[in-house]
Structure formats: structure tokens, C-alpha cells
């Protein structure tokens, strides 16, 4: 269960100066693509030669099992090493692991994504799934919203995706902490975008980003009437095994890798979580 399987890099998209998206396919020993099924919000343990393993969220739509995307920010040794890799290179993959977002509950509902920086990666597949559901079912009365904060305009990820979402009717609101002269949009923290995002009752808010941002966002959403059951977040932790044994991602009596990484706010409130302060 700790033995990684082979994946090959099919495509590399440079998101910004620190972030790249790697499109991977699982391959057999003959190099033939084999299917890889996952839920939006799940993660894999990614092996990079000589650099060990790290947990990485899957950022693509789960509809197509022939590939999956990993969006990776340069932070440590492993994530720096992968930035140097090229199309055709091999990586090791274990997983998918953890519980993803409850897509069955989310499809057809109003959806608010609140993301900071690379925190948009695990949420992206959910938005794409909901968007295609909306199209297929020709639902006109559900609202899909993205509130997305980045440190500077340079740090914005998934620009092409966001533009496409906008064309498809997703209300996309972007803000940056520090503007530059080229920036025409909002300035300030992502919580500033939430002013009129009151809950529609059965809609869901999905939150992911740095701990401080999660804390502030959740507080605002609660104030705007979102129920604790309808606020979902996904946690990032140090992980080694992915299957709940190694202990690193402990959170009281749960393991983030197997019991999460997606939690409802009411689940988090039962525990002592850094993200809630």
C-alpha cells in the first residue's frame, strides 16, 4: 500500500512565477494510459525522484479518468524539484486518498467558492462539475460564485479557467492584497468580497486557503447566515502515509488524510483546529 504507481507528465501549464499545473496520466509498464478515478477534493501522494513524497490536491474535474491535474506551488525541496521536470517525465503516485467534497449534495445547488492563492486548486474540480451539471440540466436559477484572493496580481492562478468560468456565467470576483499599476480590480482581503454573499439556505460555501484566511472567511460566512453544515473546507497537513497510520496529520481523534481533508464547519468545531484559532 506504500508502493507508488507510475504516472507520466502529459502537459505543464505555468500558472504564475511559483505555480505550475501538471497534467498526469497513470501508465502501465508498457506506457499505456490506465484509468484513474477520484473525487473532487481528494489528494494523491506524489513521489518525485530522490525527493520523497508529498500530499497534493487534485485540481481537475473528476469526469475524465484518463488524466488528472496537480497544481503545485514551489515551497519545499520536493515542490521545487518538480518545477524543473518536463513533459514525458515520470512521477510516482499513490491514491487517491481521503474524502472529497460531497458532490451529490452540491450538484444543482447555489455554490460559493472562497479561495486564497493556491487554495483554489482543490475547489476547482467542484466548480467545473457543478458548471457542467448546470449546462447539461439547463439549470438557469442556480448561482455559482467565486471569490478569489491573491497576494499580488502576479500570484493569481488559473487565469484561463477563471476567464472561461466567467463566460459560462460564474460570478468571478478577484482581489489582491497588494495591487500594482496594472491591476484594475479590487484590492484587499478576500473577506472584503463577501459583503453581499448571504446564504440562500440550501447553497454551499467551500473555503480553502491559508489558515488565517479560512478563519476570517468562516466568521464572515457565519455572520451572513450560512449554516455550519453548509460551510465546507479542506485542510492542508503534513502527511506521510495517506492511509491514517503514520500519525503526522492528526487532528484530535481524527486523521486528516482518511477522515478529511474535506470537513464541514460543524465537524471542525468538534475539534481543536488551528484554522479556527
Amino acid at each position: 500500500m506504500y508502493t507508488p504507481k507510475s504516472a507520466v507528465i502529459k502537459e505543464i501549464i505555468s500558472e504564475n512565477h511559483l505555480v505550475k499545473t501538471f497534467r498526469l496520466s497513470m501508465v502501465d509498464s508498457q506506457g499505456q494510459t490506465i484509468p484513474f478515478r477520484f473525487e473532487a477534493g481528494q489528494f494523491v501522494m506524489l513521489s518525485v525522484p530522490h525527493r520523497g513524497e508529498a500530499p497534493i490536491s487534485i485540481s481537475s474535474i473528476p469526469a475524465n479518468p484518463s488524466f488528472f491535474d496537480l497544481t503545485i506551488r514551489k515551497a519545499g525541496l520536493l515542490t521545487s524539484a518538480i518545477q524543473e521536470m518536463a513533459v514525458g517525465d515520470h512521477l510516482g503516485v499513490r491514491g487517491p486518498f481521503g474524502h472529497g467534497f460531497p458532490l451529490d449534495d452540491l450538484l444543482g445547488k447555489d455554490l460559493l467558492l472562497v479561495a486564497g492563492g493556491i487554495g483554489l486548486a482543490p475547489l476547482k474540480g467542484v466548480m467545473e462539475s457543478c458548471l457542467s451539471w448546470k449546462k447539461v440540466k439547463k439549470l438557469t436559477d442556480i448561482s455559482l460564485t467565486l471569490c478569489y484572493g491573491s497576494r499580488t496580481p502576479e500570484d493569481i492562478c488559473f487565469r484561463a479557467t477563471i476567464e472561461k468560468w466567467q463566460q459560462d456565467g460564474v460570478s468571478c470576483r478577484l482581489t489582491v492584497d497588494e495591487a500594482d499599476p496594472s491591476w484594475q480590480g479590487e484590492e484587499g482581503l478576500v473577506t472584503g468580497l463577501l459583503a453581499d454573499q448571504s446564504s440562500s439556505g440550501d447553497g454551499y460555501a467551500l473555503v480553502c486557503g491559508p489558515p488565517v484566511m479560512i478563519r476570517a472567511t468562516i466568521a464572515r460566512l457565519q455572520a451572513f447566515g450560512w449554516s455550519d453544515e453548509h460551510i465546507l473546507t479542506t485542510l492542508e497537513r503534513h502527511m506521510k502515509c495517506g492511509v491514517g497510520v503514520c500519525g503526522h496529520c492528526h487532528l484530535d481523534n481524527t486523521m486528516v488524510c482518511t477522515d478529511g481533508p474535506v470537513f464541514t464547519l460543524s465537524q471542525l468545531q468538534e475539534m481543536k483546529v488551528a484554522e479556527l484559532g
Binding site: 506504500y2 525522484p49 530522490h50 520523497g52 508529498a54 515551497a75 519545499g76 520536493l78 515542490t79 491559508p210 489558515p211 492542508e236 497537513r237 503534513h238 506521510k240 503514520c246 500519525g247 503526522h248 496529520c249 492528526h250 483546529v273 488551528a274 484554522e275
Partner: peptide, 27 residues
């Protein structure tokens, strides 16, 4: 070539929970 090594760890170490970016969810 290389080896993947499993070794004992201790939850009392700060590096046990600290993430690549430096954030540590355990005080």
C-alpha cells in the same frame, strides 16, 4: 537509484507537523 526508508518518528517533534511552507498547525 535510491531507497525509500521508513523510520520511527515522534509526535513531540515540531517537524512532525510543520508543513513545507513553514506553517505549523500544532502550537
Amino acid at each position: 537509484k535510491g531507497e525509500r526508508i521508513r523510520s520511527w518518528d515522534a509526535c513531540t517533534f515540531s517537524g512532525f507537523t510543520r508543513m513545507a511552507g513553514g506553517h505549523n498547525p500544532i502550537n
